[in-house]
């Protein structure tokens, strides 16, 4: 009971040193909030966790029908189009669901925020982790799909965790920024679905990013998900889809900038969350 006596001084603008220590102290809360969200998500549903598989599966089927069969978009030589799309769709859906969950997370937990203290960073971060669990399930689905097409990836697949990390960071950075903005400006409630919907078409999910004209490429690469998706394709499809160094570099830089700015903005506005929410 009598652990080390903890001293704490509360003053305006003086929480910095304490904050990261608290984050460590509440580290289990990450896990528990994610666990709660996962448990709750499929309670009282008949097919339960199967929803995590059905959603991406149906999207892939629709994409294959519309873009491949009707619009005659082609995958690179030797790769089934469904596989080509799935490999891109999965990181995109992770990003999209993480972003929309994270940006609404603070508002959904308004009750907690106004009644109990813990580092607020845990809430959006926890919801990104929740999406990561769904993502793990869809990865399993991807493996099944590869078995179906009898397609074996090579050594490059070992780099996949790096691209997952990049996707995670991109989702977290933008999620932090958007959820903090959402507390104050509810306009972002309408902005996020738009980003998610729009992003699917500007990211190279249905097509290869080699189709983008060269002179537009640098603008195109500013979308951090371009690097992630190209990376996924490169890692899973034996390098048949090229991963340009400048694409990867600009994704990493944009993601890092977004993370730093996201954390900074979040921390700056965090103290007023309870008053504004």
């Amino acid at each position: 009971m009598s652990t080390r006596r903890q001293e704490l001084i509360i003053e305006t603008g003086r929480t910095e040193q304490q904050y990261w220590r608290d984050l460590w102290h509440f580290r289990e809360l990450f896990y528990i909030l994610a666990w709660r969200d996962i448990l709750v998500r499929y309670k009282q549903t008949v097919i339960g966790i199967a929803w995590a598989v059905i959603r991406p599966f149906v999207t892939v089927v629709v994409f294959t029908l519309v873009f491949n069969r009707i619009a005659k978009l082609e995958a690179p030589e030797g790769i089934p189009y469904a596989l080509f799309v799935s490999v891109a769709m999965m990181p995109w859906q992770f990003f999209a669901s993480a972003l929309s969950e994270a940006s609404g997370s603070l508002l959904n937990n308004a009750g907690l925020i106004s009644k109990v203290y813990f580092p607020r960073l845990i809430i959006p971060a926890g919801s990104v982790i929740t999406s990561l669990v769904d993502f793990a399930i869809t990865l399993a689905m991807l493996a099944v799909l590869m078995l179906w097409y009898q397609y074996a990836p090579d050594w490059r697949v070992l780099t996949l965790p790096l691209f997952i990390l990049l996707a995670f960071a991109a989702a977290l950075g933008s999620g932090l920024l958007l959820c903090a903005l959402n507390v104050k400006y509810r306009d972002f409630r309408y902005v996020v679905p738009f980003i998610v919907q729009f992003g699917l078409y500007v990211s190279p999910v249905g097509f290869s990013s080699t189709k983008v004209p060269e002179y537009l490429r640098w603008v195109y690469d500013l979308n951090p998900m371009v690097g992630v998706i190209d990376g996924f394709r490169w890692a899973c499809l034996k390098g048949t889809a090229p991963l340009e160094v400048h694409t990867l570099a600009s994704s990493v830089v944009v993601t890092a900038t977004m993370c730093i700015y996201g954390v900074w903005y979040f921390r700056r506005t965090e103290q007023t969350f309870a008053d504004v929410i």
Partner: peptide
Amino acid sequence: SRITAPTIGRIHLR
């Protein structure tokens, strides 16, 4: 309980 931050002044908790 640190749910909201003070505008001025300080609190020392041991």
